[in-house]
Simulated assay, not measured.
Amino acid sequence: MKLTEPAPGGPCWVELGTPDVDVAKTFYAALFGWRPTTDPRPEAGGYTVARVGEDPVAAFSPLYRADQPPAWTVSFATEDVDGAVGAVRSAGGSLLTGPTDVFDQGRFAVVADPSGAVFSLWQARAFAGAGRFNDPGTLGWAELRTDSPAGALAFYPTVFGWTVDSTDRYTHWCVDGAEFGGLKEIQDDETSEEPRTPPGWLPYFSVTDVETAAATALGAGGDQLVPPTAVPGGPWVAVLRDPYGAPFGIHTP
């Protein structure tokens, strides 16, 4: 069973920090068919929500600091942001931003686990999070890439109450019996022309055909870190970058 709606402890939203929201609108609309709408209020700072049909599925936001890299951030639902921040700190993580109220929508904080992997906490009020999961163009998986798997396996179940389903091939994260993501160890012997990937959360968006979607991304100005690949006993996957270098995954559910 997979997670199908926002639930305490599970991923509820994904947000792209980018130096050019208009470029992001064009790229992801071409790739996923998203319909972006920018909040016109000056105090919203250009925040843009992308929809599939009428359902909100993701957001774009301008970068807030000169040293902030373009990146996707995964948000996890909580019924008490302030309490969750305390749990993060007690388990060895750190607070980066907040907690802060967002109009009448909810309350959020940006935190990092002990390895430095950044994620957000979201306490819903008027806005619960994504209106769809697992459908084409929506969040289908969230993968933690870390150089400290033992630390992650101690940290996240302590903070969120997750359970773990591990095989010799892969570790799955579950909340209330529903799978929503996994853990991939960053290997020290990985070789690439690119710098070694730092710890972080990588969102995977569902598509009907990974090879076609990867070709669309390349044609729209993106590139690929991992070409379309068949996972033994699992889906097709690829890891891509948008025109400003923000990495994300695509997969067939």
Rank of each mutant, 00 (worst) to 15 (best):
L139G: 05
L144A: 10
H172P: 00
S206K: 01
S120R: 15
T167Y: 05
F60P: 01
G98C: 11
K2M: 13
A30Q: 15
G140T: 03
E185V: 01
Y204A: 01
L202N: 12
A238K: 01
P253K: 02
P227C: 10
G98Q: 11
P6H: 02
A152G: 03
E54N: 13
A84P: 03
T38H: 07
V21D: 03
G249V: 11
F76Y: 09
V14D: 02
G106E: 01
A152H: 00
A217N: 00
K25V: 06
V226A: 03
H172V: 14
E54H: 11
V210S: 02
S192Y: 08
P199I: 07
A152E: 01
V111A: 12
A178Q: 12
T191R: 14
P136I: 04
D209P: 00
P8Q: 12
A150W: 07
A246V: 02
P243L: 07
G140W: 00
L96P: 01
F133Q: 05
C12M: 10
Y28G: 08
H172A: 13
G219F: 00
P70F: 03
T212P: 11
G10W: 04
F127Q: 14
G93E: 02
P227Q: 14
W141I: 06
R169H: 13
F60Y: 10
C174F: 04
V175I: 15
G181Q: 04
T73Y: 10
F127P: 07
A58S: 13
G177S: 10
P228C: 14
A24Y: 02
D147G: 15
S166Q: 15
A29K: 09
G53W: 05
F108E: 02
T212S: 15
T18Q: 02
T100Y: 07
T138F: 04
E54A: 14
E194D: 12
G17T: 10
D176A: 15
Y64M: 15
E179F: 07
P8S: 12
D39K: 09
D39A: 14
V57W: 00
D20E: 11
L218R: 15
T78C: 13
A220F: 04
